[in-house]
Design a protein around this nucleic acid. Sequence first.
DNA 1: AGCGAAGTTACGAATTTCGTAACGATAAAG
DNA 2: CTTTATCGTTACGAAATTCGTAACTTCGCT
Lengths: 136, 136
Amino acid sequence: MDELDREILDVLRRDARIPYTEIADSVGTSEGTVRNRVDRMLETGVIERFTVATRTGNIKAMIELGVDVAVDTTGVARRLAEWDPVDFVWQVSGEADVVLIVDAADTTGVNDLITRARDMDEIVSTTTRLILDEQR
Amino acid sequence: MDELDREILDVLRRDARIPYTEIADSVGTSEGTVRNRVDRMLETGVIERFTVATRTGNIKAMIELGVDVAVDTTGVARRLAEWDPVDFVWQVSGEADVVLIVDAADTTGVNDLITRARDMDEIVSTTTRLILDEQR
DNA sequence: AGCGAAGTTACGAATTTCGTAACGATAAAG
DNA sequence: CTTTATCGTTACGAAATTCGTAACTTCGCT
């Protein structure tokens, strides 16, 4: 994690689909070096994943889930991450145990998710907040 | 924005650097169609940007902020988005008004952020949760 | 049926990615 | 001071992907 890594990340944050060759030009190194470093950052977990920020124009929400004390929270979280409209799944400290960020086609989509979550017997509580606006 | 668009987005959410050819295979169409549709979604703003989820520091946290009723929440959110370790800024419904997702170097970094938030007089309350783990 | 618009497929050329080998710098060991 | 090992960078050809464009379908409308 040095200055060059940070510069590469800065470029990728702006546009994660930009080719290595262009990143190399803009940070002043070769394609191979950019590739090596991105690979390394992926392996070490500095880069968690490449993703896409969407605004389907419809609905985004944050769903907080309480998980039964007797249950493997990581397993639940992993299963939730499989669901398609889910952007992020975080295990958190505090009141709730798991937080989902979802971007669904419509309210029905969000409702489906909540219903499916409630149907898992490991899940003991849900709270939903709509994401009204996103800055950045 | 039809079902095919949504399927393409679902693939991109998991890995935004996957080639169009592979997306095409996995959703059952041609490379050209995927390309056309991604271009269109970029133009219409459905896709805001391709980005990278990072964990450059050791601490990630979700900070919930209450904003004074008399205050322009969007303005506050916009100012918060300028801060360096902040990944996302959302205005949400429910208890809190604004939620920040931060990726800081250490606990001090997170604490700084909370302190600075508390110092803004528009901010009337803060709750912090550590993000213990993230699923992809 | 005929027409136009929108979307999809086809395909060759340009570009990028990928695997691998050579090269260079740095640091520890002899 | 030279040697050796390690790590990162560069080089380069082959494979894969992207890109521009043209032909082809599909669908709705008159």
